[in-house]
Amino acid sequence: MDYSHLSYLHLVTVVPAFFIGSYLLVVRKGTAKHKALGKIYMVLMLFTAIVSLFMPAQLGASFLNHFGYIHLLSLLTLYAVPAGYFYIKKGNVRGHKRSMIILYCGGLIVAGTFAFMPGRLLHDWIFS
Rank of each mutant, 00 (worst) to 15 (best):
L59N: 12
V26D: 03
M55H: 00
K29T: 09
S22D: 11
G68A: 04
I70K: 07
Y23L: 15
P56N: 02
T48N: 13
Y87I: 00
L76D: 11
G84F: 03
V26F: 15
L46V: 07
P82G: 07
R28W: 04
T48Q: 15
L72F: 13
G30L: 14
S22E: 09
Y79T: 10
A80Y: 00
L75G: 14
H34Y: 12
K39R: 15
I70P: 04
A32V: 13
L46I: 09
G30A: 09
L44S: 01
F67I: 04
Y69E: 11
L76H: 08
L73W: 06
P82E: 06
F67R: 03
M55V: 01
H34R: 05
L37A: 04
Y87T: 07
Y87H: 13
S52T: 02
F67L: 04
G38A: 07
A36D: 09
Y79E: 08
L72T: 15
T77Y: 03
N65G: 06
K35H: 12
L64A: 14
A32E: 14
F54Y: 12
G60I: 05
Y41F: 15
L75K: 03
Y85V: 09
A61F: 15
L44R: 02
Y87V: 05
P82L: 06
K39M: 14
L53F: 02
L46S: 12
Q58S: 13
G38R: 07
A83P: 06
I50F: 12
Q58V: 09
A49W: 00
L75R: 03
A49R: 01
S74Q: 04
S52Q: 02
I40N: 06
L37S: 05
M45R: 03
A61H: 13
I40C: 08
T77A: 14
L72K: 07
A36R: 15
Y69V: 14
F86M: 07
G84H: 04
G38Q: 06
V43Q: 09
Y23F: 15
A83R: 12
L24Q: 15
A36G: 00
L53P: 01
L64F: 14
S74G: 11
F67Q: 01
V43S: 13
H66W: 13
K39C: 02
S62L: 02
L46F: 07
M45G: 06
G60R: 05
L59A: 10
F67H: 01
M45Y: 04
L44I: 00
G68I: 00
T48K: 10
V27T: 14
F47N: 11
M42E: 13
L24P: 08
F47K: 08
A57L: 02
A83Y: 12
P56S: 04
P82M: 04
F54Q: 06
L76Q: 11
M45F: 04
N65K: 06
F86K: 08
I50P: 03
V43L: 15
V27C: 12
K35G: 08
I40W: 13
R28E: 14
N65M: 02
G84N: 05
L73Q: 07
L44A: 07
S52H: 02
Q58F: 01
S52F: 00
A57Y: 05
A61T: 11
H66C: 01
K35L: 11
L53A: 00
A61R: 14
Y41G: 09
L46Q: 05
A80W: 01
I40V: 15
A57E: 14
L72I: 13
P56K: 00
K33G: 05
G84L: 07
K29C: 12
